[in-house]
Amino acid sequence: MIDRRWTAKDELIDILLDLKHDLGKYLFLHLSHLTADSPVEATLEALRVALLETRVVGGKPQSAAEIWQRYRQEIDALNYSFNGRERLNRVIEDALAMHTFIQNDNASRPPHAREVQQIARRLSETISEIIEAENSEEYDG
C-alpha cells in the first residue's frame, strides 16, 4: 500500500528531485550532442525542442517554462520555509528568461546551447545544495 503521510520537507525534496530529473532528461540530453561549432540551424532546432517541446504529455508538448513554473507553484503551495529559496527563484527566473529569449529573439542573435546548459547546471546545483542542506538538517536533528 502506498502511504500518503508525508511531510512538507519530504514533499519539497521530492519536487526538487523531479525537477532535477526533468532537467537531465529533457534538457541536458537534448543539448548534449551540440558543440561550440555546431551549425546555428542545428543549435536552434535542438534548443527549440529542448525548451519549447520539452516534454510530450498525452500527445501535447509542454515547454520547459511550463514545467518549471508548475514545479515552482508546487513548491509555493507547500508553504514550507527553507534555505536557498530565494536563490532557487532567481535561477528559475534566469531559466525562464532564457526560454523567452529562445522563443522571441533568436533571429537577432544566434543562441548558444552552452548558455542554456550553464543556466540549467546552475539550477541543478542549487537544487542539489538545497536537498543536501535539508538532509543534513534531518541528520543533525
Binding site: 500500500m1 502506498i2 508525508w6 519530504d10 514533499e11 521530492d14 519536487i15 523531479d18 530529473h21
Partner: peptide, 13 residues
C-alpha cells in the same frame, strides 16, 4: 509498489 511508506510521488520518482 516501491518501499513501505513511500509516498505516491516518491513511488513515481
Amino acid at each position: 509498489p516501491l518501499d513501505e511508506g513511500a509516498s505516491l510521488r516518491r513511488t513515481r520518482r
